[in-house]
Design a protein around this nucleic acid. Structure first.
Length: 157
RNA sequence: AACGUUGGACGAACGGUCGCGGACAACCCAAGGUUGUCUGAGGAAAGUCCGGACUCCAUAGGAUGCAACGACGGGUAACACCCGCCGGUCGUAAGACUAGGGAAAGCGCAACAGAAAGUAAACCGCCUUUUUCGAAGGGUAAGGGUGAAACGGCGAGGUAAGAGCUCACCGCGUUUCAGGUAACUGAAACGGCAUGGCAAGCCCCGUUGGGAGCAAGGAUAAAUAGCGUCGCGUUCUCGUGAACGGAGGGUGAUCCGUCCUUAAGACGCAGGUAAUCCGCUAGAGCGAUUAGGCGACUAAUCGUCGAGAUAAAUGACCGUUGCUCUUCGAUUGAAGAGUACAGAAUCCGGCUUAUAGUCCAACGUUCAUU
RNA sequence: GCUAGCGUAGCUCAAUCGGCAGAGCAGUUGAUUUGUAAUCAACAGGUUAGGAGUUCGAUUCUCCUCGCUAGCU
């Protein structure tokens, strides 16, 4: 019975997806990644109280249009089903590796949880190592001057 | 019954739980959110190979060029599509394929072989004359050999040997007659071989084509940073303005022509924003009946509304039942595996390509039975 | 959405107007050397991306697929 109540709560609306090119670039630049034979996951922290968000990047190398749609739907469904087990306050980008056939749903759930855990560990390590970067990242959200900030970071060391 | 040929239809079904896009309604109500109801991929949505609708540029007119098409008749909004029919090739047949105008407008091509690859010529031959017996001259294109293709085929007459030289049949061409809307078919007469092939080689003839594409195009909002180049004369008029000329630009191949601008302007470079709404789905729509037509299709009447996203919705799990294959059993059955190709993005009509399987109809050949 | 180009040996590229598919590097074998490299000689290696058509004959001409690349909006 507890499982059913969890399922009732598990929703996945448009607000929990990453849509803007800006956000994608921010997550890629944070460089907290975890790989698998089938998947790659990038991860970056957002504001502390925010919900976890999912972005998908499925290239043409993966397959034809219906194969790509299949991947996106499976990953979205896995993200939704395991939403309670995923840590909040992060953005995730899921990238299927090229030439990989879509797996079954249960395998994909296991892969997703494992890789999310690894990526979040990496992200926390990066966060604690340099707190200045975190503040600069917050500024990035508001002002959206990614290019300038990255240039200054490269110039400082 | 077996083997085929052609055309068409479908392309898993039902139920439960959760989730996503859209519309409507209610509630909290600032944004937005919650609940309920309805609804939500295809025969190819694909490739983007053709043709249109629609929108803007803006006048699309002429000549040349370029591109596409090419028997004939029809269908259609249009077509490189479809239907009918003719010719050709293949198949015992049902049927299949067919870019199928012009080679006496001109240019060009045909490797190797072969004597010769096209206004003819003559290697071996055959016949004949001369002869120094080596050969030379003449006639001929029946035969040999080469080639994908050799200047009609085959038989008879004829001849020194031969030859459409003559004749019959066939092929080819011209004319006439008959049938057909026509392509064409059939028959007769005449000609007496002239006019070999390739035009998916150049080309000629005929027909068609203004350009760009929903990121078209329109509205609102937000944001930024400007810079450079070009640039009006005359006449008339009190003046507004008009005419002519010049300059710049468009007409996306060129020229003529034409159109626009000419001082709150045009063009170029650089930079910023890429957010919302409209376009956006009722249409050459779909289904049925009747009528016309061999058919593609058309007309009338009745009924009906079936996706509209934008980091882009159609999914996940479970159960039952179909269908196919394998194994066991072999009457029912049991277990396992599989259940294709593939995803709308402005919308239609085609073509092409990919497809597990299932069903229906018509027809052909062979065999068996009556 | 629109448009252009390319595909030939393991690699990089040729092949005029349609007429025997070639070169360099790489590979194999032999020679040379005490041995290796270099050099010399010989050899092998091709569905000309796939299919169909035109033609006597197609890498070449035409059409349809497949893959790759580039450009414009």
């Amino acid at each position: 019975m507890t499982d059913e109540t969890k399922r009732v709560r598990a929703r996945f609306s448009r607000a929990r997806r990453i849509k803007l090119q800006r956000d994608f670039q921010r997550v890629y630049r944070f460089r907290a990644r975890a790989f698998n034979r089938r998947l790659a996951i990038c991860c970056a922290p957002t504001a502390p109280g925010a919900r976890a968000r999912l972005g998908l990047s499925v290239s043409k190398r993966v397959g034809k249009a219906h194969v790509r749609n299949r991947w996106k739907r499976l990953v979205r469904e896995a993200f939704r089903a395991q939403y309670a087990a995923i840590p909040q306050g992060y953005d995730f980008i899921v990238i299927p590796q090229k030439q990989a056939a879509p797996p079954s749903f249960n395998e994909l759930c296991d892969d997703l949880l494992e890789l999310v855990a690894r990526a979040v560990k990496k992200a926390n390590r990066a966060k604690t190592s340099s707190e200045l970067k975190q503040t600069s990242a917050k500024d990035d959200d508001r002002e959206a001057n990614d290019a300038l900030s990255s240039k200054t970071e490269g110039a400082n060391p």
